[in-house]
């Protein structure tokens, strides 16, 4: 019985000593990994945002703001990535720059749209619509169509570097297209390359 109690106490201490640390995401000096981690998305997004703001394409000549939607950003890597990890950062900064307004009425994927925009209109057109004060319901023809669309892809290329090491290249490619004319206003590619042991898995 005494031995069992001691074993229980020892196990409790052992479990309690498992070290978990919070990542200092502002000054992270942790080792690099072969797969894409948050630092890679931070870098790619930062370079994209700076290129976009530096290009001046978002500044309207008449002083107004462009309406921007996020189209399709394809994940062409071997990893399961939510491309919102990239687009959300870009959307946030370019909205805060005061040069564009994002729309949630249309978008390339569900997370770019707010389903309530259409749901509320469905309610308005249904029998339940009479239950609402009519001047609080959205009228027809009130949605603003986007002027510009942000789209692109993330591509992964795996190469054999030597017998023991591999090279993984990640290409972040984004473009902004004027939806009326179809003209491409801006595009940028950010390359993040990593080399490491073949034993490390890049997906």
């Amino acid at each position: 019985m005494k031995k069992l109690t001691l074993l229980f106490i020892a196990m409790t201490f052992a479990v309690g000593c498992e070290k978990v640390t919070k990542i200092d995401t502002t000054n992270d000096a942790g080792k690099q990994v072969m797969a894409l981690d948050y630092r890679d998305f931070d870098q790619a997004a930062s370079e994209m945002i700076q290129s976009l703001l530096s290009s001046g394409v978002l500044a309207r000549q008449d002083g107004g703001k462009y309406v921007l939607t996020t189209g399709v950003i394809t994940n062409d890597t071997m990893q399961r990535i939510d491309t919102d990890l990239l687009s959300a950062k870009i959307e946030e900064d370019i909205s805060n720059s005061g040069q564009v307004v994002m729309t949630s009425a249309v978008g390339g994927k569900d997370s770019n749209r707010d389903s309530m925009v259409n749901d509320l209109r469905d309610v308005r057109d249904s029998a339940k619509g009479d239950e609402f004060k009519q001047d609080t319901m959205p009228s027809k023809g009130t949605l603003i169509a986007p002027d510009l669309s942000l789209s692109g892809k993330i591509y992964q290329n795996n190469l054999r570097y030597d017998k023991k090491n591999q090279q993984v290249e990640y290409y972040f490619q984004l473009k902004i297209t004027d939806l009326k004319s179809g003209l491409r206003f801006w595009q940028k590619e950010v390359l993040i390359g990593k080399r490491g042991s073949n034993k490390t898995v890049a997906w």
Binding site: Q43, S46, I49, Q50, D93
Partner: peptide, 9 residues
């Protein structure tokens, strides 16, 4: 505050 404020190499 901005998402673009990160360490770049």
């Amino acid at each position: 505050e901005a998402q673009q404020t990160v360490w770049l190499r």
